[in-house]
Amino acid sequence: MATTTPLQAQMLTSIASIVLSAALVIVTYLYYKETSYQTKPVLKPTVDKVDGILTRFAIENTGNGAAHDVVVQFGFRHLDYRVDWEMPLIAPGDRHIFYLPFDSASHLVYKEEITNEIGDSKGIIEFESKYTDAFGRPETNEEQVEVLKVLNLQEQSSELVNKDEVREVKRELKKIRKIAEDL
């Protein structure tokens, strides 16, 4: 059976339509994946020091999207102490701070006090979080933070940074003094 020109045109149109539909499906999928990545929340636990002495535990949304219906449990493993905490929304970049130890009446807690409280253990904070993203998809995160290890690393890195900063300030002051003398 011979094909006619109108039939060939109809077949070409059908093939073009199939190819265009497939391309549209691929582009839509790629758009969905990129949008999902851009709206994904990521809750991370951290331990840091303020002004070199005050130690605190923080929960931060490091992702690109808001975390909804947040339910978090955290605490020291060796103390059998846990905190239950809920928040309806944590926007990207939001940080919620808790002073260590968590049940302390005083917010002025020094590294030495935490070391005494932790004793011979590693001072591991167990962190578990459950939340949903903007599309209602559930997310979970379980992590451990070794308090003393983090604090020791921060002290070592801040000592190195401080020495370099002093050197840099001295260099810049010498440059300014030289410019002032030349004027």
Rank of each mutant, 00 (worst) to 15 (best):
T35F: 03
T46A: 11
G63H: 09
L24M: 08
V25P: 00
V71Q: 14
E60R: 15
K49H: 01
G65I: 08
Y32N: 08
G52V: 09
L30H: 03
V47R: 09
V50G: 04
K44R: 13
T28K: 06
S36I: 07
T39A: 04
E34F: 07
T55Q: 09
G65L: 09
K40P: 00
V70R: 04
L54H: 03
P45F: 05
D51V: 03
G65S: 08
Y31P: 00
T55D: 05
T39D: 05
A58N: 13
Q38V: 00
V72Q: 02
T39F: 02
N64E: 11
H68P: 00
E34H: 13
A66C: 02
A58Q: 14
N61I: 11
T39V: 06
T35D: 06
S36E: 15
V42H: 13
E60P: 01
V50H: 05
N61W: 07
I59R: 08
K33Q: 12
K40R: 15
I53A: 09
E34K: 15
V42E: 14
Q38P: 00
V70L: 05
Y32E: 04
G52M: 12
I26G: 01
A67K: 06
T62W: 05
G52S: 09
A66D: 01
V42L: 15
Y31N: 12
Y31V: 05
Q38R: 15
Y31W: 03
T39K: 13
S36W: 12
A58H: 07
D69A: 15
A58L: 15
K44G: 00
I26Y: 06
Y29R: 05
V42T: 10
G52A: 10
V72D: 02
K33P: 00
Y32T: 10
A66K: 10
K44S: 11
T62H: 09
T28Q: 07
R56G: 01
P41V: 04
K40V: 00
K33L: 10
K49Q: 10
A66E: 13
L43G: 01
T62Y: 02
N61M: 10
N61Q: 12
V50F: 08
K33I: 12
A67V: 03
Y31L: 10
G52T: 12
V72F: 02
G63E: 08
K49S: 12
N61E: 07
H68M: 14
T46H: 02
N61G: 11
T62I: 15
P41M: 07
D48I: 01
Y29E: 03
T62M: 12
K49W: 00
L24Q: 13
K44E: 14
T35W: 06
G52Y: 07
T46C: 06
P45G: 14
Q38T: 04
Y32R: 14
T55M: 09
Y37R: 14
I53Y: 09
F57A: 03
A66Y: 03
V25F: 05
L54R: 11
Y31G: 04
N64R: 14
D69T: 11
L43A: 02
I26C: 03
H68Y: 14
